[in-house]
Computed example of a mutant assay.
Amino acid sequence: MTQQKENNSIKEDVLFLILKVVIFLILLAVMFLFIFGITRCSDNMMSPAFKDGDLAIYYRLQKEYQPSDLVVIQKNGEIQIRRIVAKAGDNVEITEEGLKINGYLQQEAGIHTETLPYTEGISFPITLGAEEYFVLGDNREQAKDSRIYGAIKLSEIKGSVITLIRHRGF
């Protein structure tokens, strides 16, 4: 009789453990489907902050963004990581001198190349409308960003980057 009780107790413990694991996996799936997202950086346009192959975990529920925020955007069917440099109401101009926001030349920490206008793309100056943001890649000489496709809408922002996982660490 004691042997049978021990077997039933072990079975109950195993079933309880399986139930805990299933609940944990469901919670994890819900978190990454609705609250957080994960994407792979597929270019070097954000170098040196993000390199090709790095993973970015982003927060989907944030709806207000500020200049210098790193965001994941979906533009023309492509997922990109870019840096916000201007928000709604700002006047953006890129000249041979560099990036000007509301008439002031910007000094950006962590940007190692000059911000110059592209020959193709939009014409400057541009004033951002409601729920519009101007984004640039950190590798300004090669980045495909708002200088080419213009301001992005709030609806094109998937979320704010909260952490980076280096590809080379695996």
Rank of each mutant, 00 (worst) to 15 (best):
N44E: 10
M45R: 05
M45T: 11
M46D: 06
M46T: 04
A49I: 11
A49Q: 11
K51T: 13
D52M: 13
D52K: 15
G53S: 07
L55T: 09
A56R: 02
I57G: 01
I57D: 03
R60G: 02
L61N: 06
L61C: 08
K63R: 13
E64A: 11
E64Q: 13
L70W: 08
L70C: 11
V71K: 05
V72T: 06
V72W: 01
Q74E: 15
K75G: 00
N76L: 09
G77S: 12
G77V: 12
E78W: 08
E78A: 12
R82F: 08
R82N: 13
R83W: 04
R83I: 05
R83D: 02
I84N: 10
I84Q: 10
I84E: 11
I84T: 12
I84S: 11
V85N: 00
K87N: 03
K87D: 03
G89V: 07
G89S: 08
D90R: 07
N91R: 13
V92N: 02
E93S: 12
I94R: 00
I94F: 01
T95L: 04
E96Q: 14
E96V: 09
G98V: 01
L99S: 00
I101V: 15
Y104K: 14
L105N: 07
Q106P: 04
Q106H: 08
E108V: 09
E108Y: 06
E108N: 08
A109V: 14
A109S: 15
G110N: 12
H112N: 14
E114Y: 06
